[in-house]
Write a protein that binds this DNA or RNA. Structure first.
Lengths: 366, 366
DNA sequence: CTGTTAGCGCCTTCAC
DNA sequence: GTGAAGGCGCTAACAG
């Protein structure tokens, strides 16, 4: 039966010092790269270290410096291409500054998020990038109070005095949907992964925003600007579940007076929407126009090529890391929202609304 | 000018002990959850801790226990869906055991890999999952020698006495290509991201394997079994570069005696291949059959749906983590290769070879 | 059950 | 330029 073996004793500075025949402090100085030592002793210490296979103990070093050279990153799911890219952005900037990234997935579960943040506080990460799942930020405030800077990624939070890095969600959504209304679409559905509960909570919590809320607001503004009544709004929340998004679109498209266009607010919703449209044998863009939020590596592989609102996801992550690095360096600038610009990429999945939408039906299973 | 501010002093156990009017050790016991304390004192300590906002210092704890409850994961690029899924697999299993995952991207650069591994050793991670970029494993041996268990993911390494988790690459590739030869294809191209240099090195280093080598071997076996001469082998190495993969396929397909089928060994190669085929206006699968290694979320969204060899990527990562956990628990089982089964998913991108392949040309730019 | 006392490995005064 | 001694925050023997 394997017993929880404690790791073997490692070579330490005293070991090296003894082996080199110098004092502990001297060995520490050359191995730590501070203070000074004569070329001769340096040589001997280095030789002894190499011989014994000495390796710095970063834990002990952290204990003194109070810095772990580590950034905590809390996202919903690294498997999601959006977060994967964002993490890469954070990681690249961090690595350049000699920091490493510790990852935590929350699956949009606020409890997991709190647990992850607490764990990061205990581990004394030097900074925290968080994609908050809910609208509560007490745990983030606590992190900040304990001296750990926090930057919100992709989502801002109402009231919190926190740095955040987001895109111009409202404008981008508005522009995208306006492109649809200007082509005669009046029945435009929005498929979004965020749950209405989160949405309401974000709204209720006050002044500020949560990404999906912003995108929905942009959608509504575009409809209003086109003189489309509020009763014609079609919004489905499908909770980061591709199958549910598919089901929602299936339902929408096979009903009377079906939408002639779909706007999706994230890549999971986009995937599910396209599943449904494929299964319905819908001819894009003639039967239905589609615009997705966030570009994807496969967007130009499907037919027609998908029109999207593209976000600079890597940059978002990179900027979050930079802000953190600045704060770690002692910056006390007032926390604020940093908004990056998204780009509308007009490809081939939008077209004028059909005069009389062709009815769509699920073909009977073979 | 912001000065590298050391983090503020945090509340420590002595602080809590004083505030609760108990001895340091007592406070430590209840806060650390070991030893025993009377309900009354426990109460008071907890209250004091809450009041002062005490938070365990995991760094100090690690210093004593010698364990950081951390797994280092070294991959080529988290942005790549394959690695993202693998990381998620590792992370889930690790999280369940109370460990967190530290990430490092190498971009297939052996130097970056060595640096990352060394950094992980210095940080005293409890275990290491590595997708080795080269065939050299001295740095991994060093990690093991220093008491850190290592598991190779996705790629095995010749000669190294290391645990590894891989799929049945050779058989899977052989079966996939055999599916092509059985349908009359004789001109079958392989597009692979791995560079020939790596390949040769892996081969040279001895007995064992490296994933791409295995897949190529499977390809060759299938050709041989079908009586196709070695001179008909078509292999392009495109170095994890989608654009280069596209260019390679473009070149191949516009030449005389073009391939009628393409087998790609990873998702980057698949993406580039499909780019090229789309640009050539090739009609899949009639003009060209395609089989990709590794399934993708968009594989059923393109027309025709992509036939693939699907790997249990999450499981691969999860198993790697489990092996590590076992070793951390003291297991001394002989390191070995763990092979998981891949699945051939026959969708719509393969068809019999055309009798007379239609010439493919890049349409002139509009 | 509780308090006192040593360290974990390193950095940092401070004398020499 | 070099060595000795103290402490970072916690756990682990010990006594009491």
């Amino acid at each position: 039966m394997p017993q929880p073996a404690r790791p073997p004793r490692r070579v330490t500075i005293p070991d090296v010092a003894r082996h080199a025949g110098v004092g502990q402090a001297t060995a520490a100085r050359v191995l730590g790269g501070y203070g000074s030592a004569s070329a001769a002793t340096r040589e001997r210490v280095l030789a002894a270290a190499a011989e014994l296979g000495y390796s710095t103990n970063a834990v002990a070093r952290s204990m003194i410096s109070g810095r772990t050279h580590t950034l905590g990153v809390v996202v919903a799911d690294v498997e999601n291409a959006y977060f994967a890219r964002a993490v890469r952005g954070v990681s690249d900037v961090a690595a350049r500054a000699g920091l490493q990234v510790v990852l935590a997935n929350t699956d949009e579960d606020a409890r997991k998020e709190r647990a992850a943040v607490q764990m990061f506080v205990e581990r004394r990460v030097d900074g925290l990038v968080v994609t908050p799942a809910g609208s509560d930020h007490a745990h983030l405030d606590k992190a900040i109070a304990s001296g750990i800077p926090v930057v919100l990624l992709d989502r801002a939070l109402g009231g919190a005095g926190l740095d955040s890095v987001v895109v111009d969600n409202r404008d981008a959504a508005q522009a995208a949907v306006a492109g649809l209304t200007s082509r005669g679409h009046t029945r435009i559905a929005v498929i979004t992964s965020a749950s209405p509960a989160d949405d309401a909570a974000a709204l209720a919590s006050g002044a500020d925003i949560w990404t999906t809320t912003e995108r929905l607001t942009g959608y509504r503004q575009a409809l209003r600007a086109a003189g489309i009544p509020r009763t014609a709004e079609i919004v489905r929340h499908t909770g980061y579940d591709r199958a549910r998004a598919r089901a929602a679109v299936l339902g929408l498209m096979t009903a009377d007076d079906r939408p002639t266009a779909v706007f999706t607010t994230d890549n999971v919703a986009t995937l599910g929407t396209l599943d449904a449209l494929r299964d319905l044998d819908a001819h894009l863009p003639d039967d239905v126009s589609v615009i997705g939020f966030d570009d994807a590596e496969w967007a130009t592989l499907i037919r027609p090529r998908l029109t999207v609102v593209s976000q600079p996801v890597q940059d978002l992550g990179g900027l979050a890391a930079e802000i953190l690095l600045r704060r770690i360096d002692g910056s006390t600038a007032r926390p604020r929202r940093h908004t990056l610009r998204s780009t509308y990429i007009d490809r081939e999945s939008t077209a004028p609304a059909p005069a009389t939408p062709r009815p769509l039906r699920l073909p009977p299973p073979a």
